[in-house]
Design a protein around this nucleic acid. Sequence first.
DNA 1: ATATTATTTCATAATTTTGTCAAAAACTTA
DNA 2: TAAGTTTTTGACAAAATTATGAAATAATAT
Lengths: 99, 99
Amino acid sequence: MGNLVIDINKLEMAASKLRAIAHPMRIAIIDLLNDSPKLSVTEIYEKLKIEQASASHHLNILKNKGVLISKREGKKIFYSLKNISLTEIIECINRCNED
Amino acid sequence: MGNLVIDINKLEMAASKLRAIAHPMRIAIIDLLNDSPKLSVTEIYEKLKIEQASASHHLNILKNKGVLISKREGKKIFYSLKNISLTEIIECINRCNED
DNA sequence: ATATTATTTCATAATTTTGTCAAAAACTTA
DNA sequence: TAAGTTTTTGACAAAATTATGAAATAATAT
């Protein structure tokens, strides 16, 4: 009785992951990466017409939340959607939205 | 190409729902309601030792996000977990946390 | 070393969330 | 109707979170 049924840490992780994704510029980044297997920071900031540092910042947020992965190849660092990818996330969202 | 795959509205709804739940006092409220089928606002604020208005605000947030439902009976208004309840939410969280 | 690419840090601005108070509303009972 | 409960609402300031831009730093390739 009265025992905490919900793990507040997991909740906060999930909430912060969704919050991270629910941002116009980051949606745009995810959208770009949904069409290309991988893109460098330069490609991303040029396509989206934002500053490099800004792109890096957003990419880092998405990486920290486990949405993206990065891999260096020569000079550049390429970002990709983490394999489990969007369909899983979207399924989760829809589940959360069921009323 | 470049078409928005994610519905930003659904994302924001899910994010805000999780954010609503991921709050210590609201977790406590959900926890209380997990043990009782229904509780009045008075019962809740007394058990949690918070102000009535504060309880009402939190309850309203949870109700707006579809976590709780309310029903008037005589003088009092009783809140309950919305039937789909916690197991669904917890499953969703765990899904979201899969790495 | 130099140029390129990306990250990190820092300051600051903007936004969101919270808590509290007082007033209003909804309802019941006498 | 008047008086008493119970709950909601709105307004406001404090606190916390998030966003943004500029400059410094790091890592790599040639």
